[in-house]
Amino acid sequence: MRLVVVIAGLILFVLHQDFWNWNESRLVLGYMPIGLAYHALYSIAASLFWAFAIRFAWPKDLEEWAEQADGTGAE
């Protein structure tokens, strides 16, 4: 499942480049430049992506490893 999360993250990174909006200055909802609207939605998508990553790729083993020690590196 971690691989799916990594692939989804890479796709999201590619989608950030939205070259199709590059020279487009039309407004959506009457006031929002389309390039800005796209990236605002992108921020929402990024938030959903992190919720997905927490659900399916949370480093539980790392968390347990951290809790095992006494603050000096010893277990």
């Binding site: 999201l12 950030h16 390039g35 921020s43 990024a46 992506f49």
Partner: peptide
């Protein structure tokens, strides 16, 4: 112009959280 948002803000939304993770 509005590209400032993409260059900093939406990149940061994805990448800052990635760094936290």
């Amino acid at each position: 112009g509005i590209g400032t948002y993409g260059m900093l803000a939406s990149y940061s939304g994805l990448i800052h959280s990635a760094v936290f993770f």
